[in-house]
């Protein structure tokens, strides 16, 4: 190799390397923005697995909604005849507040069961009834142990449960009607 072509190669190498890296990072950031790439989605060990065993108490009563006081457990979730959307939330979690209006829209299509994660029961009750509860059933996981068995890393987090108790879908970010249409609705087709 002659000196000039070698010099050209050595000059080009860092530029080509930096451009390749830049392009890769741009793709990742772009994907994170339009939802095509979710760095947290690499880890969904729960998919296809049966739901973990749990039994959680309900929330204190607040007027109209009596279903929230009983809580629920794994076998109740397993014995449903339609898919259920399970949503971990907390009144102290800002993304959960942002998620609520969307959940109310989604609740018209599929029953949503909520689990209040590490929340004071009265705070959780006040939170879900402030603008109307999207939840068909509510339970509370005050010490966060059940959430660990579900592989929850932070609220909000949602699971789609098939009749019989298999986890069909898991998402570690806020649920929106757009995400519901794109990812959950196709999964519901076999159960309609």
């Amino acid at each position: 190799m002659s000196t000039t072509s070698r010099r050209k190669l050595l000059t080009a190498l860092p530029i080509v390397g930096a451009s390749a890296l830049g392009f890769g990072f741009w793709r990742m950031l772009h994907g994170m923005q339009n939802g095509g790439f979710d760095p947290r989605a690499v880890n969904t060990p729960q998919l296809g697995h049966p739901i973990p065993h749990f039994s959680l108490p309900g929330l204190p009563a607040s007027g109209a909604n009596a279903d929230q006081t009983t809580g629920f457990n794994a076998s109740e979730l397993q014995s449903q005849h339609t898919p259920i959307l399970l949503n971990f939330f907390a009144s102290w979690c800002i993304p959960c507040v942002a998620e609520m209006p969307g959940l109310r829209i989604i609740a018209q299509e599929i029953p949503i069961w909520g689990i209040a994660y590490k929340d004071k029961p009265e705070d959780a009750t006040a939170f879900i009834h402030r603008d109307g509860s999207p939840y068909a059933r509510v339970a509370t996981d005050q010490n966060g142990r059940a959430a660990i068995d579900w592989g929850v890393t932070g609220v909000p987090e949602s699971f789609l449960i098939a009749p019989g108790g298999r986890i069909l879908w898991h998402n570690a970010s806020g649920l929106t009607p757009q995400l519901f249409d794109a990812e959950i609705r196709p999964l519901l087709a076999p159960y309609r």
Partner: peptide
């Protein structure tokens, strides 16, 4: 741990 959160 890996049963719940995967090898991650």
């Amino acid at each position: 741990m890996t049963d719940r959160y995967g090898t991650f």
